[in-house]
Design a binder for these strands. Structure first.
Lengths: 246, 246
DNA sequence: CCTGGGATATAACGCACGTTAGGAACAGGC
DNA sequence: GCCTGTTCCTAACGTGCGTTATATCCCAGG
C-alpha cells in the first residue's frame, strides 16, 4: 500500500476519493535511483515534488572543504518537498542513500490536486509543519546532546517513523546506511559513532548487523536519548480542520 | 511601517488591498511582554498566530536537567507561527528575550484572510518554507561549524535579516540578548562564546558593546562564518505564483 | 554617593570528542 | 577459489571546548 496514504491517515481521515487521487499521483512517472546519487542538487531549480516509495534518501548541505551535514532522512512515504512551489532555487541537496524508487509529481498535477481538494491541502500543510518540527529536534540533537544521546535519539526516531509506515518487523528495521553517513547526520566523527554503538551494544539496548537494526529495549533507549516522540506528531491530530475558527 | 509587509514585499508584490488586510491584522489585539518570559510553552495548545512588531523572541526546547537549545530567533516582522492551524500541542516553547510587542491574530481572522486572498495564502506558505530553511541552516551550524564559525555565521544572519526589515543603521544593529543566550543558540558554552567574540574583536571584524553590534568587515565575517545568504531567500522570488503550473 | 546583582571577561584545568593509523570482516567481480 | 575495495572496528594520541573559579564592569535602586 502507498506509504504516503498510510502516513496521512495517522493524521486525518481520508475519503476514498482522497485516496484515489493520492494513488493516482503516486503512480505518475516512477523513477529509480542508484544509491549515493543526487536527486536534486543545491542551486538547481526544483521542478517536481518527489514522493519516496521505497528506499532511503536525505537532505544535506556540503561545504567546499568536504564537511557535510545531513539535516533529515527521507523514508518511504515522505514528500521531498513543497519548495517547488515557492523557492526559486534549492538551498540544499537531496540525495539517495539506499536505492530509491520515487514518484515525480509535477507542479501542475499537485496544483490541481490542491485546488480540488481542501483536505489534501491541509494534509500537505501538515506535512510541511512536521518537517519543520523534525528540523527543530535535530537542532537540539546536535546542539545539546552528547554523542551517545544523539545516537540513541536517532535510532528511536527511525523506529517510530518506520513503524508509522509499517516497516518495523520483529522489533527492528532495515538500516541501509553506513556509520559514516550516520556520523554526518549527527555531527560527530565516524570513529566516535562506532565507539558509541559499541556502548549501546554492550548495554544490550540494540544491535546493528548486516544492515538491520534491532531494538532490544526501547524504553531504555529512549531514556538514554532523552527521546520524546511528541515532535513527530504521529498520533491522530487535525480534528481542528472540520471546525476552523472555534 | 509594518515590518511584516516590508518583509513579504521582498518576496512578492502586494496590492493595496493586501496591505490593508495585513495592516488590519497587525492592529488586532496588541500585547506587550516582559523580557525573558514565555509567550507559549511546550505542551500548550496554540490559540493565536503571533506577529512580532518589536523586540526579540525565540523558539527553544529545554531538557529537565537544564540544558536549553534556542532553535530560532524571532525578529520584528516574524510570524510565530502557523502551527496553530494544525498541531494540537506545541512541541517547543516560544519566549521573549527583549521586551516584545506583538499582535495576536486569531485563527478565525487568519482563516478568513486566507480564504479571501490567495496571494496572502501563498505568502504565508512562503514564510513557512523559509522557517524550515532557516532551521536546516541551524542544524548545519551546530553540527559542522567550529565555535568561531558559528558565532560569525549568526552575526551575519542577524545582519541580513534585520536589514530586510530596516533595522540596520550605520553598519550595525541592536543586540538585546546576553552572551549566555547566544551560547544556547549556538550549542556552545557562554565562556567559549566570550572567548570567540574576543577573537573576532581582535581581528577587527566586529564590536559588541552596550547592546549594539557593529559589523566592521562584513565580507570577512561572512568568510569566517562560511556564510551564504541563499537560505534566507530574501531576494524577490515567487514569480511562479502568477502562472502556476507552467 | 554607595550597594547589590547580573553580565562580561579571563585564566587554569579537565574531558569528550577528533584525528590518525592499521587490522579484520565482508561483498562483489572474475 | 582469489583479488580488491569498502566498511567496520579498535587503539593511541591530540585538541577544542566545557567547567570551575574569580575579578571586573555596569547599571538600577536607595
Amino acid at each position: 500500500m502507498n506509504p504516503l496514504i498510510k502516513k496521512l491517515e495517522r493524521f486525518t481521515r481520508l475519503s476514498d476519493e482522497d485516496k484515489r487521487i493520492l494513488q493516482h499521483a503516486a503512480a505518475s512517472r516512477l523513477r529509480n535511483f542508484e544509491p549515493r546519487c543526487d536527486i536534486i542538487s543545491e542551486g538547481e531549480t526544483p521542478r517536481d515534488v518527489n514522493l519516496i516509495l521505497s528506499g532511503w534518501a536525505c537532505r544535506y548541505k556540503q561545504f567546499e572543504d568536504g564537511r557535510r551535514q545531513i539535516v533529515a532522512f527521507f523514508l518511504p512515504g515522505d514528500l521531498c518537498d513543497l519548495n517547488v512551489f515557492l523557492l526559486r532555487e534549492m538551498d540544499h541537496s537531496i540525495g539517495t542513500l539506499a536505492p530509491v524508487t520515487l514518484a515525480q509529481i509535477s507542479r501542475d498535477l499537485l496544483q490541481r490536486m490542491l485546488d480540488a481538494n481542501s483536505r489534501l491541502t491541509q494534509a500537505l500543510w501538515w506535512e510541511t509543519l512536521i518537517t519543520a518540527a523534525n528540523h527543530r529536534e535535530w537542532v537540539v540533537n546536535v546542539g545539546q546532546r552528547t554523542a551517545i544521546e544523539r545516537v540513541a535519539h536517532l535510532l528511536c526516531e527511525l523506529f517510530h517513523r518506520l513503524r508509522a509506515v509499517g516497516l518495523v518487523r520483529e522489533g527492528g528495521y532495515e538500516m541501509p546506511i553506513t556509520q559514516s553517513e550516520m556520523a554526518d547526520a549527527l555531527g560527530i566523527s565516524a570513529v566516535h559513532v562506532n565507539r558509541t554503538l559499541r556502548e549501546l551494544r554492550i548495554a544490550e539496548l540494540m544491535t546493528w548487523k548486516s544492515g538491520r537494526v534491532t531494538i532490544l529495549d526501547l524504553p531504555a533507549l529512549e531514556e538514554v536519548g532523552l527521546f520524546n516522540p511528541n515532535y513527530l506528531h504521529l498520533d491522530r491530530e487535525g480534528q481542528q480542520f472540520d471546525a476552523p475558527g472555534t
